[in-house]
Structure formats: structure tokens, C-alpha cells
Design a binder for these strands. Sequence first.
RNA 1: GGGGGCAUAGCUCAGUUGGUUAGAGCGCACGCUUCACAUGCGUGAGGUCACAGGUUCGAGCCCUGUUGUCCCCACCA
Length: 875
Amino acid sequence: MKEMQTTYNPKLFEDKIYDEWMKKNCFHAEIDPQKVPFTIMMPPPNITGQLHMGHAMDETMQDTIARFKRMQGYSVLWQPGTDHASIATEVKIVDQMKAEGLSKEEVGREGFLERAWAWKDKYAGRIVEQLKKLGSSCDWSRLAFTMDERCSRAVREAFFRLYQKGLIYRGSRIINWCPGCKTALSDAEVEYSEDAGFFWYFRYPVEGSEEYITIATTRPETMLGDTAVAVHPDDARYRHLVGKTLLLPLTDRKIPVVADAYVDPAFGTGAVKITPAHDPNDFEVGLRCNLPVIRVMNDDGTMNELAGEFAGLDRYEARKRIVARMEELGLLVKIEPHSHNVGHCYRCHATVEPIVSKQWFVKMAPLAKPAIDAVVKNKTKFIPDRFAKIYYNWLENIRDWCISRQLWWGHRIPVWYCDDCGETICSRETPTVCPKCGGTHLTQDEDVLDTWFSSALWPFSTLGWPEETPEFKYFYPTDVLVTGYDIIPFWVMRMMFSGIEYTKKVPFRDVLIHGLVRDEQGRKMSKSLGNGIDPLQIIDAYGADSLRLSLLTGVAPGNDTRFTETKVEASRNFINKVWNASRFVLMNVGDEKIPPFGTCKLQPADRWIISHLMQTIREVTLAMQKYDLGIAADKLTDFVWNDFCDWYIELTKASLYGEDREKRQGALSVLLYVLDNILRLLHPFIPFVTEEIYSYLPGKKGLIITAEFPHYNAKLAYRREAAAFDEIIELIKAVRAMKVAVNCPPSRKVHLYLVTESKRLVNANRSSVQRLAGASEIDFLASTSDLNEKTVSGVASIGTVLVPLGELVDIEAERKRLNKELERIEGEIARAGSKLANNNFVMKAPKKLVEDERAKLDKFLDMKTKLHQQIKDLD
RNA sequence: GGGGGCAUAGCUCAGUUGGUUAGAGCGCACGCUUCACAUGCGUGAGGUCACAGGUUCGAGCCCUGUUGUCCCCACCA
């Protein structure tokens, strides 16, 4: 048989194993009517760069679930893909061109798109490679891209349907304009941050009077677009001015004083300049008061020709000059520092300008309602469910979705305008004739769609929708979506209302939400901070399995987690443990023919480990079904390390190195059985190393990836036997502790004397106890006083254990130690006693609990008696 | 202004429907060349579960309030 390397070295096999999985087509999702489908849609990573730690966690969770379900016999589709990330990618390409001294305009739309596709080819491929390094078991034969033919068709279809229903419209509204990217943004794409700014107080003269109205503004440059000043209708200070006309300084325009309840009389001066073209609230006031809309800024953030003498200036330069001019005119009253929330572009971080602009919108109210209902009615469940509140919060307060972007990289809006009659034509296919006038000069809308418009269709566009493909029928709706909470408003919400609208079904049954991966100090990992850690570097140093495990353990669903290399090390150490335990078993098996599990006589220790294995299988399966991956991983590491390695393997050594061939074979048979189960339980978490070790197991034909996940078998639960055996473990621990207490070297063999009623149990495990407790011999005594030697003693559930240690025994120290132990036991007695003395507890608590408490009390009382005896014996 | 998270060992965090003596990893102390593993083994120390009430036979967990801290949304020009 093959020899395993002495230490775990993932570099030697991870790539090799991934190749083998690929070669054997292990990730392919079959449409199999005999099987139940299980579908996960991978959130498509942007093609803008490379995977970060957040992706690594997201993908690991999905892969772990996919592998688990696959092993459970589901037909698993884990659909991979990448996102064109319209704005983000375009920003990158523009930067790249800038470095070459080129601009978008110079290369033109065609030339630009050529570059974009080249970019896509390069980076999408890179991301796929990174996903493979992690061990992702997605179906690569179905790799999708949000701008491939299939997805593009779905986008046109979706747009067309909404347009037909009147849910898509074009209009001039206040939108968020990014002067950096020169495009409109949706509300979700604006990030607010508290910026230090100022309040400038300006005086606007009242026409035909000596009076002024003083207003305060944070954006003086917008005053050139003012079309009114508003006051509260009930504000006595200004009532006489309502309806009067103001002379707007720096312009020759006259603007009215209007009354509107939007104004808060207590804030500022109680008078507000109204700039409908540059402020959402002002826009609303403008509509109510029928005010003109005067836009004074260009798309690039400079002032336009309506700004008079300030035309052509950058908005901030214009601001400075306007303030200076107002001061010259004696109209500047004062400047106050004022910090306020300012919106920034989520991609280029430029300050966003609210601007009136003609854009395409999706009417949200009719779409939001069913999306809310679906979660209320539990058709889709958030895990943890508190995230449903965030989801509701967004949908309940949602405004119409601005979907047009003044970009080139993306899905072009499927709308054409007739050059002859001006007709607007929305069509699935490129039209050639105007249906209204028959004209043939049609021009397509220049804009592209918000990236998220195509992402919203991902769960079904990838399956061939709008066609009723076999894939769509079999794999849709999907089972679980795994994603971070930060993406709920961008994506989850939009997939929900899109899925319901187009397919009449919720796109996924469960939404498993995870938190952010932060750095060691709890900061968000970000490029600007330079604190990001590259998952590939970690994989290079520790292996993909270690990274995966470290990202899943100690993490509660939905909570943020800190990434530390120490944690990866801990995972690596555990995997090394698995490696060496396996090596131990396989070395001992050697070329021997081991009888199959179930044909050998079981020793108490065997039943004990099998019992714990069954318990573990049950708990892990349950946790996995609830997507409690961290809990499942914890239970597994605990079982493997503590129960299997530290106890069971050590316990079997007596049999393995003993004379009795039957016992040796029996032990090996159980060792192999438990190891095989352990590997299969661990495989979803640490797929590479388990596959590698599995290949060394004798008599294995297939791969572990296609093996069955272990099943709980009630017949192998052995609960009573396992509990009894716990007393042996307790005994061994007691002896070890006694030796440490008196500074007896662990290697020094001691003679054990036991006063116990469980002689049979001890005899059955005699050699194991001797080995693990470091005992030369074990003898039974009828009473503790039968031994006339200086001893160290311990009291355990199984009875009293005496160890003659001659000169090592310090009577006083021993007395102290026993008294301390006595104190602890008395504490327990008091606790259990008072509980049982409480009539309400005895009557109302479950019977089992009361019985257990009684048994405990009896046990402690017995131990107390024995301890008293031991202390007395010291004299 | 609205909503939410978190507060448990020195550090980072688990704690599954309320029920054994509240756990893990790391760190710390002492001891170990025990023939799978020092990426290891053994034994320990370390917690008034933020605070104050309440519900309950029983609260780290449920309810109310307080404090601290972080996040999301909205936003007064």
C-alpha cells in the first residue's frame, strides 16, 4: 500500500485532487428525475479584480453546503458565473486608458467595448482560477456571465415585459448624479458620510422694498438655479412677504416667496432657497408650487451657461467665487461651520450631485408589495431571520429605481427612437421599421442598464429563462442563496421582486446571510487601508482546507468575523491531527486483511467511540440542515480531536500492541470504520485532505466527493455502555491529576489500588487503564483501610483509588488537596440539595431532570463519604 | 429621527427550542524526547455571562429599562 507523508502538506495534493474531480466530472449537475434537486446560485463576483476574503468565506459556505447535499444524494447544481459590473468595470477601464493617455471619446463606443471584452476575458478567467484554488465544486460547464447571450436575452425580455406593463417609464426626475463617473446612480449606490462643511447665510433683497430675506445654504453654487424662497405658511415673521418677489443676486432673475409646510421654521432662518433642479426636496416643493426648474450644472460638475459669469467653473471653484461676490455685494451675513451628511459615489467616491435629469425608472410600489408578502408568508426565509427586517425596511420605503446609466459597458437599453416621427419603440429584437410611421431611421437609446438589473435575473436567466428549459423546470426555484448582509438592498431584494414578477415564484427558499470578514483589529478590509489579506497567499502558506475551516469556525450566522492568521494556524493544526491520526490507523493496518466492521466483537471502548460517533453524526447533520456551519465544524473538531485522537486511539494501543490477535483486529476494524466516517463527515469542510486520505483507505474504489454522508444508526447508539465507560475515563483522569499534584513524573509507573463495585468494567479495560494512567498494576481492595501505606487517594464515580507513592507523599499537602476536593463536592451537594428541596422544582420540572438531579446528589453524597474516609485514613 | 447588532475567561469568539458543574481556540502556569502527530501530549489557573428590575420551579438565553459600543436607513435647506 501507499505510504502517507509524515506531515500534512497540502501543496503535494490539492491541485492534483482538483484536477481529478474535474476529470471525473464530479461537479456536474444532472437533471435526474430520480433525485431531488438542490440549487445554489453563486453570487457572481465582479470582473473588476480578484477575490478577497469576503468572497472566500461566501464561496466556502456555498461549497460546504453543496458538497454536503451532494453526499446526501441530492442532484446539486451550484451555478457559477461572473458579473460585468457595469460602472465598476468601466471606471477601471477608463483609468487604464488614462494611463495610456487615451479617453473614452477618443476610442469611441466600439473601441471601448472591445477593450472591455478583453478585460472581461482576462479577469473572469482569473476569478475562475481563484475559485478553483478554494476547492469550489460548482458546475463549470454552466459557467455564466451577466452579459452572455443567455443573460442578455433575459434582460431584454424583462425590460420589455415591464415596459409593456407600464412599470418602466422615462422621465425627468431628481437623481443622484456622479460627476466622476458621469452617470446617474440608484439610491443604493450612494454612500453617505458626515463631512465638515459650512452654512452660508445670504440676503436676498425684496423687490420694491428695503427688506431682505436671509436664507442659509450649504451649497451656495446652487443659488444660481433658485426659483423661489420658501417659508412655512404659519411663520409670522415672513407671512407678509409671501407672494412678494425677490431679486436673486448675481442674476437678473426675480423669484417669488412661496409658502410650503416642508419648511421647518425652527431650523436655520426659517426661509429656504428652492432649487428644484438640484435638490430632491426642492424638486417636490417646485412641483407643488409650480416653479420652473433651472439646472445650472453640467454632467461633469462644472457650471453651465445658465450660471452666467460662473459658467464653465468647477462647482467648488464657483462656490468660492459666489461667496466672494456675495460678500462684495454686502449680502453675505455670516458663515457657520456645519457638518452634514454628503452623498458619495460608491465606486469613485466623488461627491454626488442631486440633479434633474431624464432617466429610465422602474415603478417600485407594485413590485415591492409581493416581495414583502413573500417573506411575510415565509415563502422565502432569511437566516438569521432578523435580516428580514432590513429587507422590509428597504422595500417599504423604496422609491422608483433609476435604471439608466450613462455608460457604455453594460446592457444597452432596448429602446429605439424614430428619427422621423419621434416614436419610442421598446422591443426584444432590434427593430428595423417604426411601427407608427414606417420610417426606417431608428436610433437606439444611448444608455445602458444598471448592473443590478441583470443581476436581479441571475437565478433564472442562467437557467435559460424565458424559455421553459429542462434546467429551469428542474432546478428553479433555487434552494439557498448565500450572501452578505451588505448586499441585501442591491441584490437580494431585487432578485426577489424580479423572480416573483417574471416567474411567479420566489427565486430561493432560504437566504443565508453572513457578515463581513474584518481584519485583526476589527476594521473593514479595504484597498485604501491596505489591510486586505489575499486568500491565495493564505492558501499558498497553509492550504485551502485550512483557510476554509478557519473561515467557518467560531462564526455565528450573520455576524462579522475577524480574520487572523492564528485561526488559520489552528485549523491547519487540526488538519495535521486528522492527517496523523489517519496515518496511525493506516500504518497499523499495514497490509493486513481487516474484518469488516460489525463482524468483530466490540470492546467497551469501541462501543464508547461508536456511541460518540453516532451522536456526532446526528448533531452535525442537524446543524448542517440548519446551515449552522460553524456549529457543525465545532462538533466535528471536538469529536475528532478529543474523543477519537486523545481517547480512542490511545485506548486501542493496548489492543494493537497486545498479544490478542482477535482484539487487535477488532480494534483496527473499528478504527477504520470510525476514520472512514470521520473523513466523510469532514469532507464538505476540508475537501482536499479528506479526499487525499480517503484514497489511502484499504478497499476504496470511488472518490469521497461521491460517497454518502454518514447516517445515524440508532442501533449503534450504545448510550448506557458509553456512559459506563465514561467512568473509566474519569478514573484515568483522576490518577493523572493525582500524579501531577504530587510532582510524580508521568513516566513513573505506579501501583493502583481500587475500592470499587465495578470490577468487571475495570478488568475489561485493565490494560488500557494501565497504559493511559501510567500504572504498573491494578489491584482491588475491599476497603481503603486495607492498605497500610502512605498513599495519595482520589474519589471518582467508579470508587476510590489509592496510589502508594512512598516518600513522594506529603501528608499535609495531600490533606489539603483532599479537603479542597471535599469543598467542591459539598458545594455540589448544596446546589443539588437545595434544588431538590424546592417542591416546585420537583413537581414542575420534567421528570427526567429531577431523576438526574437525584442521581447526581446520591453520587456526590457517596463521594463525600469516601472523601471523609480518605481524610481520616491519613491520620 | 427610525431600525438593528454587539456587551460571556487576558485576547478573539461559540453557546442550537430556557434545564447537568457556562465552552472553544489562542495566550498563561507546571510537567512531559509516552514507539501518529512538539502543527504534539498531560495537568491546571482564569468568568458576580455590561447594569437594574421582571416572568419562571429554573434565565447567559425570554420581557422592560439603563449604560457603553458598532452598523444600516432617513435627514433640516
